[in-house]
């Protein structure tokens, strides 16, 4: 391929690209920088220090909120990944044109395009009904509620990622296993799961981050004592944002980046090139 190093359009594109990156990172950098603000209010810079970190660490409300979010994230990720893996395998192995598969795909797609506020307002009366008239008192528990709504949010994403992963795979390997008298469970465990593994892994991570990020639906169903971190942050908007929020966010950002790096490395090791890693991670 011919390379035109001094091409003005290329140069312009490169400058534009760098500017977009600056735009993308600006507010994140601001949050990281202002987490070292020793003042009482987030936006009013006082001096550099670690006061916000120690105050956040010693604040039991913040601690509870972060703990609630992390536990919810793990549980919702487990439930939605289990269900989504089953769904993804079933959809990938469905006969082309099977009606049940079409309907299921459509239903899952509807959950993807439903605005979060509608998820929130619809699930709240239902949980209240189940918990009071239905006698299912377990749904009155704040953690159970959060896990339910976050599983519903992530289910379609996990299912589609797993399905996309398995679609490219050779179905004959499974048929060969069946011919060799592997029972369905062994076939699933020894053939299908290892094949789908990168997709399952990526789906689990997506489910976790979706849960950790969710504010709107969680704010509807949350019960006192189980306030997740984003809902806590949203609540402090009205009373004044403090640097503690930036401090916790910085720590969470570092954790997320570490998790992302691990997933990327695992997917790369399983033989994907970078583009398909990106495609897997974004559900494409």
């Amino acid at each position: 391929m011919r390379r035109e190093r001094r091409d003005p359009v290329d140069l312009l594109l490169a400058v534009f690209g760098v500017l977009v990156f600056v735009f993308l990172f600006l507010p994140i950098l601001v949050i990281v920088v202002y987490s070292f603000n020793t003042g009482r209010l987030l936006g009013a810079w006082d001096s550099f220090g670690f006061a916000a970190y120690s105050r956040a660490w010693n604040n039991p409300v913040i601690g509870d909120a972060v703990r609630t979010s992390l536990v919810t994230g793990v549980l919702a990720s487990l439930v939605s990944t289990t269900l989504g893996t089953i769904g993804g395998v079933a959809l990938a192995r469905a006969r082309p044109g099977a009606r049940w598969a079409g309907v299921l795909t459509a239903l899952l797609a509807v959950t993807l395009i439903t605005p979060e506020v509608i998820d929130g307002i619809s699930i709240l009366p239902w949980l209240v009904t189940l918990g009071t008239d239905g006698g299912l008192s377990i749904v009155n528990n704040g953690m159970v509620r959060l896990v339910i709504v976050h599983t519903s949010l992530a289910l379609a994403v996990v299912t589609f990622i797993v399905r996309a992963r398995l679609r490219g795979m050779d179905e004959q390997i499974e048929e060969a296993a069946a011919d060799l008298y592997a029972n369905p469970w062994n076939r699933f465990r020894q053939i299908t799961l290892p094949l789908a593994w990168p997709g399952i892994f990526a789906g689990a991570l997506m489910a976790f981050t979706l849960s950790l990020d969710n504010t709107i639906v969680a704010s509807f169903v949350q019960v006192p004592g189980y306030t997740p971190w984003p809902v806590y942050v949203f609540g402090t908007l009205k009373v004044g944002l403090r640097p503690e929020i930036a401090a916790v966010s910085t720590v969470l950002l570092l954790l997320t980046l570490a998790a992302l790096a691990v997933v990327w490395a695992v997917l790369r090791r399983s033989g994907d090139d970078n583009t398909s890693v990106a495609a897997t991670l974004t559900g494409g």
């Binding site: 993308l24 994140i28 601001v30 202002y34 908007l237 944002l241 992302l260």
Partner: peptide
């Protein structure tokens, strides 16, 4: 670069919006 684009995507939605409020 792709990983860098994903960073804001995986930063809390509310928090990065608060970043703009400060700016």
């Amino acid at each position: 670069l792709l990983a860098l684009v994903l960073v804001p995507f995986w930063t809390n939605f509310l928090v990065r919006t608060i970043g703009w409020q400060v700016i």
